[in-house]
Simulated scan of single mutants.
Amino acid sequence: MDATNATADDAARTVRRVVDRIEEAAVVDREVLHAMLSATLARGHVLLEDVPGTGKTVTARVIAEAMGLEFTRLQFTPDLLPSDVTGSTIYDEQAGEFEFAPGPVFTNVVLADEINRAPPKTQAALLEAMEERQVSVDGTTYDLPDPFLVVATQNPIEQEGTFRLPEAQRDRFSVKTSLGYPDFEGEMGLLERRANRRSLSPSVEPVASPDAVRLLQTLTEEVTVDEKVRRYIVEIARKTRADQRAEIGVSPRGVQRVFEAARAAALIEGRSYVTPDDIKRLAGPTMAHRIVLTTEATVEGIDGTAIVRHAVNAVDVPAVAPGPDDPEPTTPSGTESAAANGDGPDATSGRDATDPHGGATETDRREESWHGE
Score class of each variant (00 low, 15 high):
6 A>E: 03
304 G>H: 08
252 P>A: 11
167 E>I: 11
370 W>C: 00
93 E>M: 13
153 T>M: 11
167 E>L: 07
291 I>G: 00
319 A>N: 09
92 D>G: 14
318 P>R: 05
19 V>M: 13
169 Q>C: 06
299 V>M: 10
14 T>Y: 01
327 P>E: 07
208 A>C: 13
156 P>F: 11
224 T>A: 15
229 V>W: 14
220 T>W: 14
307 I>L: 05
268 I>C: 02
321 A>T: 08
23 E>N: 11
205 E>N: 09
179 L>Y: 13
163 F>S: 07
166 P>K: 04
364 D>G: 04
27 V>K: 04
99 E>S: 15
157 I>A: 03
224 T>Y: 14
325 D>S: 07
118 A>S: 15
348 T>Y: 03
363 T>P: 02
199 S>T: 15
336 E>M: 06
67 M>D: 01
125 A>T: 13
247 E>A: 15
226 D>I: 09
351 R>S: 10
348 T>G: 13
25 A>G: 04
361 T>N: 00
210 P>G: 04
329 P>Q: 07
280 K>R: 15
235 E>H: 09
209 S>F: 01
149 L>Q: 08
99 E>C: 11
140 T>A: 15
92 D>V: 14
10 D>K: 01
27 V>A: 01
151 V>H: 00
57 T>K: 01
146 D>R: 15
132 E>I: 06
261 A>D: 08
59 T>Y: 00
332 P>F: 14
326 D>F: 04
126 L>S: 06
219 L>E: 07
301 G>R: 14
335 T>V: 06
45 H>F: 06
344 G>D: 05
20 D>S: 03
313 N>F: 06
345 P>I: 00
322 P>Q: 12
122 T>K: 14
66 A>G: 12
11 A>R: 02
80 L>I: 01
306 A>G: 09
244 Q>E: 14
302 I>M: 04
146 D>H: 12
318 P>L: 02
209 S>E: 07
372 G>Y: 00
92 D>E: 14
72 T>D: 08
54 T>A: 09
316 D>A: 06
313 N>S: 07
134 Q>M: 13
298 T>Q: 11
228 K>R: 15
354 T>W: 12
338 A>E: 07
116 N>T: 13
180 G>E: 05
356 P>D: 09
325 D>T: 07
368 E>K: 05
284 G>C: 10
225 V>H: 01
291 I>H: 10
52 P>Q: 06
244 Q>N: 13
95 A>M: 05
329 P>N: 04
133 R>N: 15
327 P>W: 02
180 G>D: 06
331 T>R: 10
241 R>L: 03
71 F>M: 09
111 L>C: 03
250 V>I: 08
150 V>Q: 04
172 R>K: 03
249 G>P: 12
142 Y>I: 01
280 K>V: 12
21 R>V: 08
298 T>R: 07
31 E>F: 10
323 G>A: 14
242 A>T: 08
35 A>I: 05
